[in-house]
């Protein structure tokens, strides 16, 4: 059962990723990307990282995608199509990507991963909260604070950049 679901998700991810990077209608690309994100969140659910999956949904699907769509609305029209890409460019890029993928996958196939441990991951809310706010070993208080600072900085930065000049 779970095996099937994994394959479904994997196929969804791959197909929609390809569509997202090849579609010539820019908003469709964004929507395909949304499906990729949803499938990734599904994978997280499948691996019982519920919190992470919900974060993925909120931040990516609820936040970043909306940002994308907004920016697309501001910068193009509904029946705009992206220019077709020169065949030469496609061929070279494809070659580069396939070469990279082949190298990596062959490396992965030859590598013997250590035996997976069959311990249930305790990814409950309480554990996450405790880790995020502790500063001992396995504590993430510092990165947590740094991230919050970064978020604030980017918030202010985005406002300052996108603000219309007064001059």
């Amino acid at each position: 059962m779970e095996t099937t679901i994994f394959y479904i998700f994997a196929i969804v991810i791959l197909i929609f990723s390809v569509l997202a990077v090849t579609s010539r209608r820019i908003l469709r690309a964004a929507v395909y990307f949304l499906f990729v994100l949803l499938a990734v969140a599904g994978l997280f659910f499948l691996l019982s990282f519920n919190f992470l999956a919900a974060v993925q949904l909120t931040v990516y699907a609820g936040g970043i995608i909306v940002l994308f769509i907004f920016s697309i609305m501001l910068t193009s029209q509904v029946n705009d199509k992206l220019e077709p890409i020169a065949a030469k460019k496609i061929i070279f890029s494809l070659l580069a990507a396939i070469a990279g993928a082949v190298v990596c996958i062959s490396a992965i196939m030859t590598y013997r991963f250590s035996e997976p441990k069959n311990i249930e991951v305790d990814a409950g809310m309480k554990t996450i909260g405790k880790y995020l706010l502790s500063y001992g070993e396995n504590g993430y208080a510092l990165p947590f604070e740094v991230i919050s600072l970064l978020l604030l900085a980017s918030l202010i930065g985005a406002i300052m950049i996108a603000k219309r000049d007064n001059t």
Binding site: L27, F51, V55, L57, T58, A61, G62, I69
Partner: peptide, 23 residues
């Protein structure tokens, strides 16, 4: 176990549909 968070996460998907409809 993340019930309420799931609710807010999922309900934020709807806005995409509205934006797409308008566009």
């Amino acid at each position: 176990d993340i019930g309420l968070f799931y609710v807010t996460a999922v309900s934020s998907l709807g806005v995409t549909g509205i934006l797409l409809a308008g566009w």
